[in-house]
């Protein structure tokens, strides 16, 4: 139990610290690197929840795929120029008020609606060793109960790809 708690705080610190450093660094490449740290922290939290599949997806997709794309885009931008530009984060007082207001709202909602969400209770540990692992159970649900949404999402992706090509490349006359 103790080691779980310690690990949780370590991962949480990674998530929050990485997040704060992401938005405060002037250099975009540094921001991207700290974002990776933050995403890794989230992956760790998934692992703690015994969601191995989400853990793997988080690493492969976010840390691997999406971050590489980010870095590619950043490399296309003139970094020295960008670092010297006036930053957008001048209105820190307004931002602070807005953040406090949103925080208060969320806190109020959680306080009022805590009966609706089962977040406060610790809950008994789920019958520990699953007959099937997390990934197998996920696959089972995905290919039986959620078969149609899973498959039809491919149509959605097809539409997006065709649309991107039409918008970017197609010569109309």
């Amino acid at each position: 139990m103790l080691i779980d708690t310690v690990l949780f705080y370590i991962f949480a610190a990674l998530v929050l610290g990485g997040g704060i450093l992401t938005i405060t660094r002037r250099n975009a490449v540094h921001s991207a690197m700290w974002l990776i740290v933050s995403l890794l922290g989230v992956a760790g939290l998934y692992l703690q929840q015994q969601a191995e599949f989400l853990f793997a997806v988080q690493i492969v997709l976010y840390v691997g795929g999406i971050m590489v794309l980010f870095l590619f885009v950043i490399m296309l931008v003139n970094l020295d120029q960008a670092a010297r530009e006036r930053q957008f984060n001048r209105h820190w007082f307004v931002a602070l008020v807005a953040v406090a207001a949103v925080g208060a709202e969320i806190g109020y909602f959680i306080y009022r609606g805590r009966t609706g969400f089962h977040i406060a209770e610790l809950g008994a540990p789920i019958a520990a060793p699953h007959a099937l692992g997390n990934t197998e159970m996920l696959a089972d649900t995905l290919f039986s109960e959620y078969l149609l949404p899973f498959e039809i999402a491919s149509l959605l992706l097809l539409v997006a790809v065709v649309g991107a090509v039409v918008m970017a490349k197609k010569r109309i006359q």
Binding site: Y146, P149, I152, L156, V159, V162, G163, I172
Partner: peptide, 26 residues
Amino acid sequence: NDLIMVFIGLEISSISSYILAGYLRE
């Protein structure tokens, strides 16, 4: 009959509409 199907259908329909609205790129 399920919110996830509503969402996927909505997105297929919407994304196609976005492209069609800007079809005459020039």
